[in-house]
Design a binder for these strands. Structure first.
Length: 574
DNA sequence: GCCGTTTTCGGCCCGACTGTTTTCAGTCG
């Protein structure tokens, strides 16, 4: 049982306890433990073997005991007992918007409803409106929510789709007279790999025109709620977008609050309470009731004796302690990236010529670009035979002649790690390349032992400089290989092989959690677009988001290095 | 159920919006 599966068990326990009407604090304890497991960065089973479960924040005696039982037996008697008391299918009912634990319990106990289908039938039959606290409108609202739930393909949307939608709203809002600022908040601003919905904050003393502009944005299916200062809509594809409008003098407090994460904000509130202040989206309130307004987010942190903390770190993963100690890293920024190490051309499955890719890199302000087309075994991508690879090298050299010093080209390849762990080109061919990226594209479903062994073999090949998208996952569609990541990261650190953060928004592989662990273990990282056309170079911003969430200092990301330093490094590898 | 430079018990964030209510409960973030 991996961390994610175990976290899901604890999330379910929390929901079932909520339906039972248990103490919210007990419920939250399970949610916190689930969150901690998701953010752990290493296999919980390793900590378990070392007897270190209690070191996980939010895991005490009781939950440690449950983790132990789950790992020993694969089952949990406590969970099974709960599901005998509360039907497990009610968890599905909770996913309906506007139905929380209280209503779910109510519907179940009064009407025997245990599934979404039964809830829908009851609503259509006009039975919900008869319950106390319910009425016709609540019933209609629940029917709408059920329809919206069925339209939504997935609960969370990849960040690569979310940002462009957010930007279309923000652009309109910023053009409204009286709007002093408009920013994305929530998990989008923290650059999580997927977001549940979009949270936007605007500063204005005159909300109505801002709300009008917001509602005039194309693609809205329906308005979910609309108040004086807050409005919420659902897009055609089910994505939810909400806007809060605050007076400009409170914009910083509002943005800080809405950016979260919840756990981060709870910690900040504790710090505020220590200072006799209470903190909310409206700002600080002193004990005498007077207010401290924060126009800028920096002021919120300054009031608590903290430097501004980058949103990507706000996950309650030690950022506040580190900030108090003045030890926050100088995180890598988009503007730090000087080169791209992973790009394709029409020699394989790219859409554009070498020259078009090079021009794109120049427009993106890059100093250097590595052409790394696919190797011969990747037939679907028209992988390069040795002859074509060598022909391509001459073409790259010719293009370099033309480009002069505008852009430095590297000739490399994205070389298949074959099912037996060997590489797709012989060593003497690899030795001719400026840069060798090894990658898994096939046989991802092998056992953990086998697929890990393949990757280790690649890492130990002296010609391999970098590993592309280590797990091969696709966020919306495919689980990655079941790697023993701890072993892989340690081997990469030891061999000096760079691990890619593939910036394609469907990959983001390494993930934030694994990248952070990689940094802790001493690995070097690269942020690569894996561009198949020049516009894909813009994906790098998503990779930067992942790297920042991993606490990556610029120094550890080799794209921040000058071309000369990159060449020195490659030569030192032989 | 967890946690501790306010330690082993007593805290654990808080406001907007909606709908059903004449003052509040539920949900959400």
């Amino acid at each position: 049982m991996d961390n994610r599966e175990m976290a899901q068990v604890f999330e379910k326990i929390a929901d079932l306890l909520a339906i039972k009407g248990e103490s919210v604090y007990r419920i939250n304890a399970y949610r916190r433990a689930a969150g901690a497991l998701n953010e752990l960065g290493q296999d919980v089973e390793d900590l378990w073997r070392e007897g270190k479960l209690r070191q996980i924040p939010g895991v005490g005696e009781a939950i440690a005991g449950k983790i132990d039982e789950l790992l020993r037996t694969g089952k949990l008697e406590f969970y099974e007992k709960l599901t005998r008391q509360v039907p497990e299918t009610l968890l599905e009912v909770l996913r309906v918007e506007d139905v929380g634990p209280k209503r779910a319990a109510h519907f179940w106990k009064e009407l025997g409803i245990t599934t979404v289908d039964e809830l829908e039938a009851a609503a259509r039959a006009g039975k919900l409106r008869e319950l106390p606290g319910m009425g016709e409108r609540s019933e209609a609202r629940i029917l709408e929510s059920i329809a919206a739930l069925r339209r939504r393909q997935t609960e969370r949307v990849p960040i690569g789709r979310a940002w462009p939608v957010a930007e279309s709203f923000l652009e309109r809002l910023r053009a409204v007279p009286g709007v002093t600022a408009a920013e994305a908040a929530g998990s989008l601003r923290r650059w999580r790999e997927t977001v549940g919905d979009l949270d936007l904050i605007a500063g204005s003393n005159d909300p109505p025109p801002a709300i009008e502009a917001f509602l005039a944005t194309p693609g809205i299916r329906r308005v979910r709620s609309r108040g004086e200062t807050k409005v919420s809509v659902e897009m055609e594809d089910g994505l939810r977008v909400q806007l809060w409008i605050h007076p400009p003098e409170r914009f910083g407090s509002a943005l800080q609050y809405a950016t979260g994460s919840k756990a981060h904000n709870v910690r900040l509130r504790e710090l505020a309470l220590d200072r006799g202040l209470s903190l909310s989206e409206h700002g600080f309130r002193r004990e005498d009731g007077s207010e401290i307004l924060c126009k800028e987010e920096e002021a919120v942190y300054a009031e608590l004796g903290l430097p501004w903390i980058p949103p990507e770190l706000r996950e309650d993963q030690g950022e506040i302690r580190t900030a108090l100690a003045g030890r926050l890293p100088r995180l890598v920024r988009m503007g730090d990236l000087k080169g791209e190490f992973h790009a394709h051309s029409d020699w394989t499955d790219g859409a554009c010529s070498l020259r078009e890719m090079a021009e794109g890199a120049c427009r993106a302000g890059l100093q250097y670009l590595a052409i790394t087309d696919h190797s011969r075994s990747l037939g679907v991508a028209n992988g390069l035979t040795i002859e074509r690879l060598q022909e391509q090298r001459r073409a790259v050299e010719a293009l370099q002649e033309e480009l002069g010093t505008r852009l430095r080209l590297l000739h490399g390849a994205e070389v298949e790690i074959l099912a037996d762990g060997s590489l797709d080109y012989p060593d003497e061919i690899l030795a001719e390349l400026d840069l060798v990226i090894a990658a898994l594209h096939s046989s991802l479903r092998q056992t953990q032992a086998r697929v890990t062994e393949r990757l280790l073999a690649a890492i130990h090949n002296p010609h391999v400089d970098m590993i592309a998208h280590p797990t091969g996952r696709m966020i919306s569609s495919r689980e990655g290989a079941n790697l023993d990541m701890e072993v892989v990261l340690k081997a990469a650190a030891e061999a000096g092989v760079v691990l890619e953060i593939n910036a394609h928004p469907e990959r983001l592989d390494l993930s934030d959690v694994h990248a952070r662990r990689a940094i802790a273990l001493g690995c070097l990282l690269a942020i690569n677009s894996d561009a198949h056309r020049p516009e894909h170079l813009a994906y790098r911003r998503y990779g930067v988001g992942v790297a920042r969430r991993a606490w990556a200092p610029a120094e550890r990301v080799i794209n921040t290095w000058d071309f000369d330093r990159v060449m020195d490094w490659l030569q030192s590898r032989g």
